[in-house]
Design a protein around this nucleic acid. Structure first.
Lengths: 207, 207
DNA sequence: GTTATCTTGTGAACGAATTCACAAGCCCCC
DNA sequence: GGGGGCTTGTGAATTCGTTCACAAGATAAC
């Protein structure tokens, strides 16, 4: 299969969000132009994005909202439930553990880990914080697919090695560090400082 | 000034993070190759990124860590304190309000807003949640530069209009909606669902 | 059935970002 | 002070992503 650009996947995810809105409002069809306006892009972009995966529209008419939504869910792999562990029971980890959006979209949090003895055993929301040392052993039963990593930068790589050993195949990393992983493991980075500094740059460098 | 790509600015922010680590460990110089490895990119990329703003290195030797860090802070506009308001006192808003990283990097949270009468007046960390209706009036004193927007999608645009009126010039938006703003206002999007679905896609579509 | 209108799907053109490759500059050592 | 070893800075080449532009397919009206 042809390699799909990251930017394309992000937009597909966005289109799906809009389709769900349209569905909710009872619209049965939608044109590439309408999707484009919502997403701040162009109709050609929308069509090109979709064309990588097939042709889902009817010429002259547009796309069937429920059908396209279904196709996108399929493409994005949202037909199944993904098993997620959160490692790092700090501020961000906690907020994410409580975030309902995860479950709604088929991402089921199965455990929260930390290495701080004072946190281990305490309850976060409805999760008991587990010792990160037991991660690999737990994984035999839990079979996690995805890890959300919110530990301090200097601990990130060590935890990643454990996660890989535990069979995790995708990592959402909040630490500003490049992680070394074997081929076939996907890592995505989220970095609040980076976003803010991007704004700071924009405010500073306007001509 | 030549337009700088978003991806370049993000990397500059990352380099700065690494330089701070190097500084902390007492390294006085660093090569583009070392920075590249930390950041998962190439030395040519590092040099190209920096070249948009000047030439800060010494051939044969590399870059002075404190000097380059200083230059990057200057480029990114981190020499000053930015005044930030958070609008939307939900889960994410709360986590962000408590996040120490903001203050450390010169982003000072000055107020938290919501439109829910049950939340208005309650304390979040050390902030009293204010009524979003008073935003414009408050701004005369507060003079916010940046807003972090964590309200439901359907309310986002309305709040943005208020923010623009209040003189905010940069917005970090957590809602999955395209926002309409006048020229000169910068908007950046952060979307957790999108990131997760990107992972889901990668897990589903591996050849 | 024909015509007018609309919107998709997609090669081709374009533009942006990354990588290559190498001359120029700097340091250190003899 | 000359040579060897590094590393920067940057045009040129390349790769990647977006936009253009239009033929082809679908509907609706008459």
């Amino acid at each position: 299969m042809k390699r799909i650009a990251d930017s394309t996947v992000r937009r597909l995810s966005l289109y799906l969000r809009f389709l769900e809105e349209f569905e909710h409002h009872g619209h049965s069809t939608v044109s590439s132009e309408e999707l484009a306006q919502r997403g701040g892009t162009t109709s050609a972009q929308v069509r090109k994005d979709l064309s990588f995966f097939g042709s889902f529209g009817k010429r002259g008419l547009g796309y069937s909202v429920p059908e396209l939504a279904g196709r996108l869910r399929e493409i994005l792999g949202l037909g199944q439930e993904w098993r997620v562990v959160i490692v790092g029971a700090g501020k961000i980890g906690t907020a994410l553990a409580q975030y309902r959006g995860f479950r709604q979209r088929g991402f089921r949090i199965i455990a929260v880990y930390d290495n701080n003895p004072e946190k281990i055993g305490t309850m976060w929301d409805r999760f008991e914080v587990r010792d990160v040392a037991s991660l690999t052993a737990d994984a035999a039963d839990d079979r996690p697919d995805i890890a959300v990593l919110t530990v301090p930068t200097e601990q990130a790589q060590g935890v990643v090695d454990l996660l890989v050993e535990a069979g995790v195949r995708a990592i959402l990393n909040f630490a500003p560090a490049q992680l070394v992983v074997p081929a076939g493991i996907t890592v995505k980075h989220v970095n609040m400082a980076m976003e803010l500094e991007g704004l700071s740059f924009a405010l500073t460098n306007r001509e």
